[in-house]
């Protein structure tokens, strides 16, 4: 039987809950696969070996790191689930603005911590990751599709097309044209554009689409009245280190 593990590092466990919400799929999976390790959902867990290991959360302590390295050694396929695991998540949005010492001081004052901590980072900074399913939380349909594909030895296919694709095909008003800040044109789709169809600008929780045009999106934000600093902060919320190279100035390099 295929052994599956689902574990969490530093994060809100929302993605694990979302996996639990895939009730129909889990019902079908039980009997096909063995949930060897899923501490959020079951009492008896075994961390010895896996065929597929899903990891949620970012790596921010030595405990996270050790667990992840161990998990990597013991699994054939490792899948990062959720934006924290894929890009570092909201907790890493200011990584490049402030030192670790300052962060610790602001939160813990002079208290000493008895574990090693570092700036939150994505799994791929520590180990090799086979597949990434970003999203805050991850998309249920994508999880089910990935599991079904992996169980049958099929490579899951995730074209990194922008959220505008799904937004436009659902005939939603373009929020940018209405003057509402939206990250749709630079964000990775797959969510079905639920935010924009509810009138809320895309927050970019699934990270970058392929070769995002940040110059243009910043200029659109400027035109609708956002300052440059606010625009950059807005874009950084979920993108973690994937945006650290944000430069202003048009470049038409490969794929750009």
């Amino acid at each position: 039987m295929v052994r599956v593990g689902i574990m969490g590092l530093t994060g809100c466990s929302g993605c694990q809950c979302e996996i639990l919400n895939c009730e129909d799929a889990i019902g079908k999976l039980i009997g096909k696969v063995e949930f060897a390790y899923f501490p959020l959902a079951q009492d008896v867990n075994d961390f010895s070996e896996f065929d597929i290991l899903f990891v949620e959360g970012s790596v921010s302590t030595n405990l996270d790191r050790e667990k992840l390295v161990k998990g990597r050694e013991r699994t054939k396929i490792l899948v990062a689930v959720g934006t924290c695991a894929c890009y570092g998540g909201v907790q890493s949005q200011r990584n490049d603005e402030i030192s670790l010492d300052e962060m610790l001081k602001a939160v813990y004052g002079e208290n000493k911590l008895d574990l090693e901590v570092f700036k939150p980072m994505p799994l791929s900074d520590v180990v090799d990751v086979d597949y990434e399913l970003p999203g805050c939380p991850l998309d249920k349909r994508q999880f089910v599709y990935t599991v079904a594909s992996l169980l049958n030895g099929v490579e899951p296919f995730f074209p990194k097309i922008p959220v505008c694709h799904e937004c436009k095909l659902s005939e939603t008003d373009c929020l940018l044209l209405k003057g509402i800040p939206c990250q749709g044109p630079v964000s990775f789709s797959g969510c079905g554009a639920p935010c924009t169809s509810a009138g809320v600008g895309c927050q970019g929780c699934r990270g970058n689409c392929d070769f995002p045009n940040f110059d243009e999106i910043l200029s659109i934000y400027r035109d609708i009245g956002l300052s440059f600093d606010d625009s950059v902060k807005f874009l950084k919320v979920f993108r973690g280190k994937t945006i650290s190279g944000l430069k202003v100035g048009f470049s038409d390099e490969k794929g750009a």
Partner: peptide
């Protein structure tokens, strides 16, 4: 013109 294009596919 392409400078301004977001490649959003709209």
């Amino acid at each position: 013109e392409a400078k301004r294009c977001l490649s959003c596919g709209t």
